[in-house]
Structure formats: structure tokens, C-alpha cells
Write a protein that binds this DNA or RNA. Structure first.
Lengths: 232, 232
DNA sequence: AACCCGGGCGACCATCGGACGCTGGTGCC
DNA sequence: GGCACCAGCGTCCGATGGTCGCCCGGGTT
């Protein structure tokens, strides 16, 4: 037996390694116009002392004049576009947004492959490591806050494209901004969750594409709230 | 539609709640004697500057004389016992150790039930929250470092009781201490992992009882090491 | 009683998942 | 050009998974 040749210290050996692999090309853009208002739903302000004893957050220094920060310009904002609609002007369309989620999926696969190679633990979800990998790989337009912000929109897209497309059409035609469209995406999902016995976790896990995304806290909470209303 | 009555702020509402539920009774104990030596395997010291730039860890104050710390006495150490063997003296047996894992499983179920009730995210594994719950529930003899320390021993017990029992008998008869037995538990698992195409993660997940425990880092590393030896 | 072996578990740490809100890009007038 | 809107994402934070090694219980001499 070769077994007794193994080193058995429980201390974890220092494993380094920096991965800067694959490049992922930026794909498409798109555009639309704006106009009026029509709010299908309320948003913001939960009343009752929100953020009670919250500490003041320090913010970054206001960029010293003679600084050498590379200072990548921020991405163009998203606008509500119909499926297939190409964005023009300094805007990005929703097809591009959803493609970002697919790219993250591919970056996750790479991270999974690498961690298996190295005998490290293999992430099942898009986590910090994946965002770091994406950045190293040159996809600097991908970042955690953005991706987490729109997860439920992507979820609707994955679980019911027709409904998702329909919503995009309506909000585009009404000239709603991205924020309003984003809020509106919650409701069809809540309805679907109801039909699934309120098992959003399971709803996500059952879908090939969605499985790799954490269920957003807000979506879980909205489902919980609706569920309790239903039972009262 | 009731949808437009929902509050849509993305800010997370302050959800509190403290759970101090159920009591879990202490179950059994056991015992054996000690004696000689026979090392089936090497342990400790991975050579090469282990813990490179590690910061000094501060340790707790040495207990002021007039202190009011409740200071629960530590649990009796484990000794290697045969299956069914009752420990005597100030020792605990391995049946008791394994029962601790089953208790943790039950605490996890409670935590899962509660988090579903509250619409919070539902842990799939024994995590900090579960250990906290166990403590609140009065099972102060359960703690994270201990449980994590022996996970692979429990794994062997779950995946091949016969082999586990056999190993216990041998190590007991040889008068080996718990540390030696614990080290020895790695090897059968590595062998089983080999037969599973080195998918320890899957091996754990396929077993009802084991599924809720994280694969110990050291076990994953040992498998990785053996795997690379095999392919060289 | 004194000693020493060995292991329980308090406490620490890097990093995580998650979120806020400042900053500045953008379209409109 | 100036202004107001709004959303991208740098940055922060509590808590997590994971571990080390101090301290002391316990058996032996």
C-alpha cells in the first residue's frame, strides 16, 4: 500500500495561484427613446425607521488631481429595449444585460474547471471568485453590484421568455425607465412562485441557467410577504 | 390584482428574532484503556515554510481571579471504543461522537424549518447558524471546531459502517489514541473516492446523512494528492 | 503530588454574500 | 451650456467557513 506515504498534517498547505485566463468579447448594445409615465407599481420607502443605527459609511477620496488611477469609465446605462432591438447612442439594451448573465455562467464554468483541477472546493454559484476571474479575464464591464441588481429580471427571462418579452415591450412603449421595468419584473415571478407552492429556491434550482444565481433577498421577502397575505 | 399593493424598496427590512428552542438530551458515553504504539501513518509537518507571513494571534486574558465567567467545564476527551461499547471513567466513546453528528442534523432541520417559516434563506449544510441554535437550545456540548474536526470519521461511519467498525476495533485493541484513529479514517475514504472517480463532493452528497456536512479541506487535499500520484 | 501527554474548543482571520449611496454620465431645455 | 435625473459600481459591513494553538483535564509514575 502506498497510503502510509501521505502527509497527514491537518494544516492546510499554502496554495497560491493567480488565474488570468480567457477573454470574453463584449457582445451587443442597443437603444430606445424615452417619454412619459405610468406607474404599475409603487416603489421605495418601507416606512418605519429604515436604517436605524447605521454607521456612516466612508467614501473614497475625491480623486486627487495628479493621481495615476486608471479610472475606467463607467458602463453606459441600460434602457428598456424590446427583444432583438439594437441600442443606439450611449445606452445598453436588455439583450446585452442578459448576455452578461450568460457570460458569468461561462466564467463560473471556467472557475469550476480550474478548482477541480486543483482539488479546491468547487463553487456551485456565481460568487466573488467568479467576479474576480471575470475581471482578470478582461471582462471589466462585469461587476457584482450590477449583476446582483438585475438577477430577478434575468430570472423572469429564463423562466418565462414570453412574459419577459411582453413586459419589455410594454415598458418600452410606455417610455418607462429601467428602474420601473426592473421593479415590474418582481410580480410575474411572485405569481410563478405562488404556483410553485412558494418555493422560489426550488424554482431557481430547477432551471439550468438560473441554478447558478443566488435568489435575491428582496425577491424572497416579497414572496414571503405575499404568502402570509394569502394565508391570513 | 393585488400586486400593486406591495412595497418595492430594495432595502432589506430589519428582521430580528432570536430562537431558543428545543432541548436535545445528552445521550451515551463509553470508555477503554490505553497502551502502546504502532503508527500506521505519518502525521504533521508539511515541510516548506508553513504559515508564511502569519500574524500573531492574540489569546484570551488568563481569567481574572475575581471573574464572573460561567466557565462551563470542557467535555471529556474521546477515546477509541468499539461499536456498542459503553465508555466508563472520564471519557466519551465514539458512538457518542457519532450521535453528536445526528443531533446536529436534527438541529439543522429545525433551523431549516424556522427559516422557511420566516422567508429567510434556508441552509443546506450545518453552518454557524446551526451551531448557534444548538447552543441556544442547551446543547452546549456541541461546537464547531469539534464537529469539523471529526467530520471525515463520521463520513466513514456513514459510507461504510463495517469498515468503520473494523477500524475502531483494531485501533482500540492496539491501544491507539483518538488522534491516530482519526488519521487512519482518511485512508478508507480516499480509497472509496478513488472508486468514485475522485468525486468526494459527490460521495458526500449522495449520502443522506453526509450531505449536510462540508467536505473537510484536508480530505479534499489528500484525495487530490493521491489522484495526481495516480496519473503521473 | 508532580508531570506530561493530548485534545477540547475559544477566539481569531480572510473572505464571503450582500447592500448603500456617491458620483458622474446623459438627455433635455 | 446648464441642470436634474438616475443608475453604475466602488466601497463598506456583519457574518461566514475554517483553523490554530492555549490551556487544562486526566492518566501515569
Amino acid at each position: 500500500r502506498r497510503e502510509n506515504t501521505l502527509i497527514l498534517s491537518d494544516s492546510v498547505a499554502p496554495i497560491s495561484a493567480l488565474n488570468l485566463n480567457t477573454k470574453e468579447p463584449i457582445l451587443c448594445h442597443s437603444q430606445v427613446r424615452t417619454s412619459a409615465l405610468l406607474s404599475l407599481s409603487e416603489h421605495s420607502s418601507d416606512s418605519e425607521d429604515r436604517r436605524p443605527g447605521k454607521k456612516k459609511q466612508k467614501r473614497k477620496r475625491p480623486q486627487e488631481p495628479g493621481e495615476e488611477g486608471e479610472d475606467r469609465p463607467r458602463e453606459h446605462p441600460f434602457i428598456v429595449t424590446e427583444p432583438g432591438e439594437l441600442a443606439r447612442g450611449k445606452k445598453n439594451g436588455l439583450d446585452y444585460l442578459f448576455d452578461l448573465y450568460e457570460q458569468c455562467g461561462r466564467f463560473l464554468q471556467e472557475v469550476q474547471y480550474l478548482s477541480k483541477e486543483r482539488g479546491e472546493k468547487c463553487p456551485m454559484k456565481v460568487n466573488n471568485q467568479v467576479f474576480r476571474h471575470a475581471k482578470h479575464a478582461g471582462a471589466s464591464y462585469i461587476n457584482k453590484p450590477k449583476m446582483r441588481h438585475y438577477v430577478h429580471c434575468y430570472a423572469l427571462h429564463c423562466l418565462n421568455v414570453e412574459h419577459s418579452n411582453h413586459l419589455r415591450k410594454i415598458y418600452k412603449d410606455q417610455g418607462e425607465n429601467v428602474g420601473a421595468w426592473r421593479q415590474a419584473c418582481y410580480f410575474p415571478l411572485i405569481e410563478m412562485a405562488r404556483e410553485c407552492g412558494w418555493d422560489i429556491e426550488g424554482m431557481f434550482n430547477r432551471n439550468e441557467k438560473l441554478r447558478i444565481w443566488y435568489v435575491p433577498t428582496r425577491l424572497r421577502q416579497l414572496c414571503h410577504l405575499e404568502k402570509s397575505k394569502e394565508c391570513e
